[in-house]
Design a protein around this nucleic acid. Structure first.
Lengths: 151, 151
DNA sequence: GCGAGCTGTTCACCGGGCGGAAACGTGCGT
DNA sequence: ACGCACGTTTCCGCCCGGTGAACAGCTCGC
């Protein structure tokens, strides 16, 4: 997708809208062309890296994310499904409780234990469950770090 | 923040990491320089439009700003909400006090402590609470400089 | 049938976040 | 110098959530 326009003499520079687009007048020093190509390549790589496809839990309890997959047992699958429905947003403990055990409400830390196990289960595929204290849980990529500031 | 490096003959092109950075060999046709400047200006405008979305505190006590998020506990959330309602303007200590503790008025110092905690909590997402002495507080981006700037 | 492994549940304990209070430090105006 | 306004630290009680371990039911392979 990145492109470098080679501009012959006597033409106007093109209008560039895209970060993955550039131009240069030819003839030009080889080092100049290489430099611009390298810059575009870096940008394309960075773009691809930031484009993450959302994880998906299929009907057979298989979670696919980050190029890998893990089996997810029934209860955890129900929890995970509701977390995925609100991917990146907070899900209350009550919602999870209802989703995981539709018939009867479980004890306080039954949910805790299953969340813990779900955490460990999804870690290998690059997902993380964050706690929002007294509010609920939040599913996101484990590369996103809450509250960390990049220089 | 966009910058165009004017490269004299005999030098290597710089390593470019940023979409807001570019370079050109001088001397060069005026139209070429103008084109690259215009491109950078467009990108800077686009970046500003997409990057600087106003901070938002959702109902689950999650503050999203600057591409990151932090959980905000109840009392601080109430303070933050009133500060956000008057984003960039002064909010009196009385208003904050009423917002944070609707039932009873807290000790003078309790508000101070919570403002301090809130300051530290929102710093990672690029927000800052400024003091306007004997008037109140003001919430803004931490990149803005308080105080007088000479031209 | 029987043991191994997996799933779901319960218990006990611990660490840490949250919010309040007091004490002390600091900067500014008069 | 004094007082006022605000900042910062420290301490503590409370409660939420995390964690390891143990336990019961179930399924599967032998």
């Amino acid at each position: 997708m990145p492109r470098l326009l080679l501009l012959e003499d006597g033409h106007h520079p093109p209008e560039v809208n895209d970060c993955l687009e550039d131009w240069i007048r030819v003839p030009a020093p080889e080092i100049d062309v290489q430099s611009r190509v390298a810059t575009l390549a870096d940008r394309a790589a960075a773009h691809g890296a930031t484009q993450e496809q959302p994880p998906h839990l299929d009907d057979d309890g298989v979670l696919r994310a980050g190029g890998n997959w893990v089996p997810v047992p029934p209860v955890e699958a129900r929890l995970l499904r509701t977390l995925l429905e609100r991917y990146g947003a907070v899900v209350s403990r009550e919602s999870l409780s209802r989703a995981g055990w539709p018939d009867r409400a479980p004890d306080r830390n039954v949910l805790d234990v299953h969340v813990l196990r779900l955490r460990r289960r999804i870690a290998p595929v690059g997902l993380a469950i964050r706690t929002v204290r007294s509010r609920g849980y939040l599913l996101e990529s484990d590369k996103r770090q809450q509250g960390v500031r990049n220089a």
